[in-house]
């Protein structure tokens, strides 16, 4: 028997959901995700490995070469990286942080991402999200956990009219369909 599953055997939570261009709604491609926690020495080591500083300002993201660190809490970051970086990135970070107290947990498939862009993005998001999404209140580069209707999401503004939504995989169809329903009059 063939020992390995075919590479295309993986199935994402939003496979089969068709992008809705009229609403600017699309599923993001799979990526590598880690939750990084730790004390100062470990964070410094992780920064050295990543090549950029973890944002210390609340609710801000930092990026370099397709890798991103999103501030989730005062000692908690979501690391996003290309899928191909995968285990190697985790191993490198573990090696860098060594014995410095830290926690690095891979959650690549715990959650999935939805991208919503275009002039209707903030209006559709505000159907379920109670935050003020005015650019002055929620500038480009801001990221935070929040709620969208009855689901928790991570919301990250990557451009004035483009948001990246992180959502736990089993909640992702709900968030997607809610956004679709919110924009039904435009579809």
């Amino acid at each position: 028997m063939d020992k390995t599953l075919a590479p295309n055997a993986a199935r994402g939570a939003l496979d089969g959901f068709t992008a809705a261009p009229a609403l600017g709604l699309a599923a993001a491609c799979p990526m590598t995700r880690f939750v990084l926690r730790g004390r100062a020495e470990a964070l410094a080591a992780a920064e050295a490995e990543l090549g950029f500083l973890l944002p210390r300002q609340a609710c801000r993201a930092a990026s370099l070469d397709g890798r991103h660190a999103l501030w989730l809490g005062p000692d908690e970051w979501l690391i996003l990286a290309p899928l191909a970086d995968g285990p190697a990135l985790g191993e490198a970070l573990e090696a860098a942080m060594g014995a410095h107290p830290h926690s690095l947990v891979e959650i690549s498939q715990r959650q999935t991402a939805i991208v919503i862009s275009g002039p209707r993005a903030t209006g559709l998001l505000n159907v379920g999200c109670p935050l003020d999404l005015d650019l002055a209140a929620f500038p480009v580069g801001m990221c935070t956990r929040t709620v969208f209707a009855k689901a928790e999401i991570g919301l990250w503004r990557r451009a004035p009219d483009s948001f990246h939504i992180e959502v736990w995989r089993s909640f992702s169809p709900y968030v997607w369909r809610f956004l679709e329903a919110a924009g039904a009059e435009y579809a």
């Binding site: 926690r37 004390r39 926690s103 959650i107 715990r110 959650q111 995989r169």
Partner: peptide, 10 residues
């Protein structure tokens, strides 16, 4: 020095 991460859906 310990941290908790939900991995239910991972």
């Amino acid at each position: 020095n310990v941290w908790l991460t939900s991995t239910t859906e991972q």
